[in-house]
Nucleic acid binder design. Sequence first.
DNA 1: ATGGTAGAGTGTCTA
Length: 258
Amino acid sequence: MRLATWNVNSLRSRIDRVERLLERHDLDVLALQETKAREDQLPLMGLQAMGYEVAYSGTNQWNGVAILSRVGLEDVEVGFPGTPGWGEPVETESRAVGATCGGVRVWSLYVPNGRKVDDPHYFYKLDWLARLREAARDWLGGQTCLMGDWNIAPQDEDVFDITRFATSTHVTPRERAAFQAFLDDGYVDVVRPHVSGPDGFTYWDYYRQRFERNRGMTIDFVLASPTLAARVTHASVDREERAGTGASDHAPVLVDLD
DNA sequence: ATGGTAGAGTGTCTA
């Protein structure tokens, strides 16, 4: 079984790339973030023709998360208990969708960006993560996969030059502590053992040819509960997908299970 | 400190 997560930065503008990605890697499950579409705007026909079912949460032009699965899609849940919204009804800003796919409980997560340290959105981000953690503790006993854009670089090696991030979000002690809390609870980062440092970057800003110079960040993660982590045989970042024109600013992250 | 690019949708907002 092969899972992947990708911040697609608009599903409609990159539907061809999504379909090629599913084919190219023979994916069973794909979690998407920043779909930037209402549910009624989703380009479903090709995906359904390829055998994928879709779980979705997204009603505004900025966020939006999806799970595509060809190994079943059961018990779909939008958001998690205690999901805090941001100036909108909870369903608008859930930033999380969960489903059971082939026996694995999958969550597609789009952690709030935070914008700037001291911005109200930064505190919303910390609160959102704390509430997710509370909910996720109950899922540790199953085969659970928390994957998506965490908007946190947990280690200095996860950014191209830590000295450039002195006043930035994504690397602050409070964000890092919020991420570490999941690991302390028992979730396992199943990608880092396979690829890390500059080879493990998953995001490169569109500005200043950041990708061409590999000045990126690692902010997309797959965290697995212990029993699921034990099934992981390989993981990688599909850097090819970030190359060329018309790419998302994130690369897909892939995980193989036995 | 600012600006650079990209996607939503036509005002800017978000990242």
